[in-house]
Design a protein around this nucleic acid. Structure first.
Length: 960
RNA sequence: GCAGGGAUGGCGGAGUCUGGUCAAACGCGCAAGGCUUAGGACCUUGUGCCUUAGGGCUGCGAGAGUUCAAAUCUCUCUCCCUGCACCA
């Protein structure tokens, strides 16, 4: 058993003592690799390990490739969560106490955590400890925290700069709002952590004749205005007459209470829903007068509590009218006008086509002229259906009409339904017949943690970063096009985010962080303050070493640093900083920040990573713009998302102790393709450990091997090693980590086993093979690789060795092909024995010999010519085949019809083939249990000789 | 709804960019055999369908198309996952 912990500690100490990862500018080419800094409100778990292990792989790999590599780390503490944790701990919130106890945090520490700064220091230390135990090649001298006053100065500079450039703006914006606490609520402020989803509805004004009071009908489908037959209210609810703007509305009392946060509403009087029933109202588009009726499904706290009824296209409306009729209600004459037609498919199918046949079955549509009814029919139901069924029919109808619907009535006849929806809405807004409404579109009402129901509010005079600025966006697009996004698959996600990102609120009333310069009562929102922080690594250790005071970091310093304005002496003068220190900062950023690689998770594409691009575009000299962004997928635990509720979160430090840092890193980094989620399981770790152990043993057993002349199998192992180096290097350069490491690790083990099983016995060959493997493992299994390297009698650090370079002369496709021919010959011979033994003439006899007949040399030549020329005729006509025309033609005939798809085989001489197969005779006969003889086709007397193919010998099984 | 990603065998998951060497890597599961006091571990073989000499057929969410050739390219649809902002 390998003791991972002791190996890890040994090498971590050795690296640290040698200051291996403390990077300073030198004559080598630089690369600075950063990974999203951790948020210090909880311990890290093994899921967090993936991004950092990937970044550390990158750092270690580039180091071995000869780069001067800087891999720094810092801690993120700004924003609301830490403050809110402290507050919840002060209030003895049982949920959070339970969480923190589950993290094995002592009661004493928990007590101290009512102070947010203690939370920050506690978890920074904890996380740093974990990263050290994981063996990351981080230069810790540069560590800082985003709440450091010295760091705040850079953030301040950033915001002055943005304002100067006109990229900040002020305005109002709809947000989820708690009326009780008077605070904006985001996902983490709500019960069950639901994200308040804000959507817009259109409120269409149906005016009551005479009084001119407005029935404000809230709808998602304003285009159905042409099919309105009546209005619905809930007769059991309370309604009010309210002044909204300069008009008076009938709206449900509950709705009024919600809507007052986004529009001025003055309630004048109350009335019952039933009082509204029977009133008349005028359709503002068609000028038809319709009546108000009771609708069973109308909810007083959704929209306005008043809806328009379109029975032809809304199953609920149709059902409500049918139920009224059934209850004996006297309805006026109504025109169930079909205003949207679905374009039929070629087969005549129109509605229900998005359902599978299973669902539709033999349903017959009897009322195609009333789509709302037709959709119920196709679902085998009717207007008496339960609400869920009506809901389903509504969704189905809405989906299909949105896809294939064409307006067949009204001003926008002929237009596709979604376009008509926009046009109708635009027209009505312009003529004052409609207004827009913000609603929470969550299926269930959203509640704040305090218990109050969340509403939509307009907050006024809020500061925003205006990512919508056209010129800025354009520049960002241009810069983005030159950034290397890894994997390239993620590119569209970035492009869309750049297009879509617009105003972003950038100040908050509460939280840790930098004071917002234009409203000192607020702090800068914590995603906005961490978009250029990575540049701070280049100078943080210099600032620390020189005891720089925050107030010395005046704008002149950052202007010089980031935009080359002024010079070191003038900056020193303006700031009181030491000129040498200023110079050192400048040299550092000029050296490191020109070639950067940023690592992160996919969740940050839509915010942090895109904002990172924008911020650099706005604030930094051209040469400091981002060069590469690497995005890795998440980590699952045995196929499931890691979550508190599933109880499957493994804290990082526990995980390292339990699984070993290297096996853990290997599984996460090399276990699946970079961009896809990876599945972690203890079982996966076991198989990695088994592999590591095999390699250990192989090194220990090296002494058993001999040396001597190189055989076919030795050349094969060399070829495998060097083609592996070549392939893996190429793959790793493009971050195809899984593919590369499957080959480097798993395949190498298989190859080594095969080599030994085939009788390979050359110490030098195996030693070289293992050295190559050890070095190539170093970026992901740094401790194990170091250990292996030293077991192979090396004195240097694997971590700083040069990455292996392939020797092309040792790569032989022919040799590898020969070996695979030998392998498949075993299988073929087995089958041949099984089948021939059933032949009557062989009954009662035993196979005694497998005669393996190797194809004549000209066959490979002819085959390859055919693969190249694709024409049998052309091959036969060639002079070298002239003497042998008949045989060549007979041989090639079998490939003729597939000539187009033939692929050339590697060139192997008859002599090599004969030699390699002959060397394999002991192995083959051992495997097959019969005598094996090798002969060439030309020398063979066997009837089957002519069947030999260039890549497949003929096999003749002899019985006796 | 909008945006991004996906759908492959009993399962997980390669292959898709760059169409042909793909009945489909690798792993799990399952079956038979070996080893073992037994179990586990390990090793060998098999694991879509048909086939008495290494062969053939069918297949990669559904449907259509391009091509000599499609898991791979194009179009349409369905379903699943993720994100949608003041929240790190």
């Amino acid at each position: 058993m390998i003791d991972y912990t002791s190996i890890e500690e040994k090498w971590q100490k050795a690296w640290s003592d040698a200051k291996l990862f403390e990077a300073e500018p030198n004559e080598k080419k630089a690369i600075m690799i950063t990974a999203a800094l951790p948020y210090v409100n909880s311990p890290q778990h093994i899921g967090h390990l993936r991004t950092y292990s990937t970044a550390d792989f990158h750092a270690r790999y580039m180091r071995m490739k000869g780069y001067n590599v800087l891999f720094p780390m810092a801690f993120h503490a700004t924003g609301t969560p830490i403050i809110s944790f402290a507050k919840r701990l002060r209030n003895n919130d049982p949920d959070i106490l339970e969480d923190f106890r589950a993290f094995k945090i002592s009661e004493d520490d928990i007590k101290k955590m009512t102070d947010p700064t203690y939370i920050v220091s506690y978890f920074s230390n904890e996380i740093k400890e974990g990263m050290k135990k994981a063996g990351f090649s981080i230069d810790w001298r540069r560590q800082f925290t985003t709440t450091d006053p010295i760091f705040s100065k850079m953030v301040e500079w950033q915001f002055f700069k943005l304002k100067d450039k006109g990229l900040l703006s002020q305005g109002s914006h709809p947000v989820g709002w708690c009326p009780n606490e008077n605070n904006a609520v985001g996902q983490h402020d709500t019960r069950h952590d639901v994200q308040p989803e804000i959507d817009t509805m259109t409120v269409i004004k149906f005016r009551e004749p005479e009084s001119n009071i407005v029935f404000g009908c809230a709808t998602y489908r304003p285009e159905t205005i042409y099919g309105v037959t009546n209005l619905f209210v809930n007769e059991k609810s309370t309604y009010v007459v309210a002044k909204v703007g300069n008009e008076r509305y009938y709206i449900a009392k509950d709705s009024a209470a919600i809507l007052k946060y986004q529009m001025s509403i003055e309630i004048e009087s109350e009335l019952k829903g039933s009082d509204l029933v029977g009133k008349k109202a005028v359709n503002p588009v068609t000028n038809e007068t319709v009546v108000v009726l009771p609708g069973f499904f109308v909810k007083p706290d959704i929209g306005t509590g008043v809806v328009m009824s379109v029975p032809s296209h809304a199953p609920f409306d149709y059902a409500a009218l049918e139920r009224l009729k059934a209850s004996g209600y006297q309805l006026p004459a109504m025109d169930y006008r079909k205003i949207i037609e679905i374009e039929p498919l070629g087969t005549g199918v129109s509605i229900g086509r998005s359902l599978s046949d299973v669902n539709v079955g033999d349903a017959k549509v009897e009322h195609p002229e009333i789509p709302a009814l037709a959709y119920l029919e196709i679902l085998h139901t009717n207007p008496d259906a339960i609400d869920d069924m009506l809901e389903f029919a509504t969704k189905l109808l809405y989906r299909e009409e949105s896809h294939w619907g064409i307006m067949v009535y009204g001003k926008y006849k002929g237009l596709k339904e979604p376009e008509a929806r926009e046009q109708v809405k635009k027209d009505m807004m312009a003529s004052g017949d409609a207004i827009e409404l913000y609603v929470l579109s969550n299926e269930e009402p959203v509640y704040c943690r305090c218990g109050a129901r969340v509403v939509v509010k307009f907050v006024e005079n809020q500061w925003f970063i205006n990512y919508g600025d056209a010129a800025w966006k354009e520049q960002a697009r241009g810069v983005f096009s030159a950034i290397d996004i890894v994997p390239a698959l993620m590119r569209p996600a970035f492009e869309k985010t750049i297009d879509w990102i617009n105003l972003r609120a950038t100040e908050r009333a509460e939280g840790l962080g930098t004071k917002f310069p234009f409203n000192p009562n607020h702090i800068i929102e914590s995603l906005s303050d961490s978009v250029i922080y990575m540049s701070f690594y280049t100078i943080s250790h210099v600032l620390n070493a020189n005891n720089v005071k925050p107030e010395q970091l005046k704008p002149e310093f950052f202007d010089y640093l980031f935009n080359d304005m002024g010079d070191a002496d003038s900056v020193a003068k303006a700031t009181g900083l030491d000129a040498a220190a200023v110079k050192r900062c400048k040299e550092s950023i000029d050296y490191w920040y020109v070639n950067t690689s940023r690592h992160s998770g996919p969740d940050l594409i839509a915010n942090h990573l895109t904002m990172y691009i924008f911020a650099h575009v706005a604030l930094m000299a051209k040469r400091f713009l981002p060069k590469q962004i690497v995005v890795n997928g998440f980590v699952l635990y045995e196929g499931e998302k890691m979550s508190k509720s599933l109880g499957n979160i493994v804290p990082l430090i526990d995980g390292i102790k339990r699984f070993g840092a290297d096996p853990l890193r290997f599984v996460e980094v090399a276990g699946s393709s970079l961009g896809t989620d990876t599945d972690f399981s203890p079982k996966g770790v076991e198989s990695v450990k088994a592999g590591i152990e095999y390699i250990y043993n192989a090194i220990e057993d090296l002494y058993k091997l001999q040396s001597g002349e190189l055989m076919h199998i030795d050349y094969w192992l060399y070829s495998k090693l060097h083609s592996k180096i070549k392939r893996a290097t190429k793959l790793l350069d493009s971050f195809e980590l899984k593919e590369a490491y499957t080959d480097i690790f798993y395949n190498s083990i298989i190859e080594l086993k095969w080599y030994l099983e085939r009788g390979g016995n050359n110490k030098i060959v195996v030693q070289e093979f293992l050295e190559g493997i050890a070095l190539m493992l170093a970026p992901v299994m740094p401790h194990v690789a170091e250990e292996l390297w030293h077991m192979l009698n090396k004195e240097s650090f694997a971590a700083t060795e040069r990455w292996p370079v392939e020797d092309d002369s040792l790569i032989s496709q022919g040799t590898e092909k020969l070996e695979s021919m030998i392998i498949s010959t075993i299988e073929d011979a087995r089958k041949a024995i099984a089948l021939t033994s059933k032949i009557d003439s062989n009954k009662g006899k035993k196979p005694i010999e497998a005669r393996i007949i190797l194809a004549a040399e000209w066959k490979l030549d002819a085959f390859n010519e055919l693969a190249l020329k694709k024409s049998m005729q052309a091959v036969i006509e060639e002079s070298r085949f002239k003497n042998n025309k008949e045989a060549v033609a007979k041989f090639l005939q079998q490939f003729a019809k597939n000539a187009q798809s033939l692929i050339e085989l590697p060139k192997i001489s008859s002599a090599d083939m004969l030699k390699s197969f002959s060397e394999a005779v002991p192995y083959l006969s051992g495997k097959l249990g019969v005598k094996v003889t090798i002969e060439s086709e030309t020398a063979s007397k066997s009837q089957r000789a002519s069947r030999a193919m260039p890549d497949k010998p003929s096999i003749d099984i002899l019985y006796g």
